Measured scan of single mutants.
Amino acid sequence: TRVETATETAWISLVTALHLVLGLSAVLGLLLLRWQFPAHYRRLRHALW
Rank of each mutant, 00 (worst) to 15 (best):
T1L: 13
R2C: 06
R2V: 08
V3Y: 03
V3I: 13
E4W: 09
E4K: 08
E4S: 06
T5Y: 02
A6S: 14
A6C: 08
E8R: 01
E8N: 12
E8M: 07
T9M: 11
T9L: 13
A10Y: 13
A10W: 14
A10G: 11
W11S: 06
I12M: 10
S13E: 06
L14P: 05
L14E: 03
L14A: 09
L14Y: 10
L14M: 13
L18D: 01
H19Q: 08
L20Y: 04
V21W: 03
V21Y: 03
L22S: 13
L22R: 00
L22P: 03
L22Q: 03
G23C: 14
L24R: 05
S25Y: 01
A26C: 13
A26I: 12
V27I: 15
L28Q: 00
L28R: 02
G29R: 01
G29F: 12
G29E: 04
G29V: 14
L30F: 12
L30A: 11
L30V: 14
L30Y: 09
L30N: 02
L31M: 08
L31G: 04
L31W: 12
L31D: 02
L32I: 12
L32S: 05
L32P: 05
L32Q: 00
L32N: 00
L32C: 10
L33C: 14
L33H: 03
R34P: 00
R34T: 06
R34C: 13
R34G: 09
R34I: 10
W35G: 06
W35C: 10
F37N: 01
F37S: 03
F37G: 00
P38A: 12
P38Q: 05
A39R: 14
A39V: 13
H40P: 07
H40W: 07
H40Y: 13
H40F: 11
Y41S: 07
R42F: 09
R42H: 12
R43C: 08
R43N: 05
R43V: 06
R43D: 05
R45F: 06
R45T: 10
R45G: 03
R45S: 07
H46G: 10
H46V: 05
H46F: 06
H46K: 08
H46P: 00
W49L: 04
W49G: 02
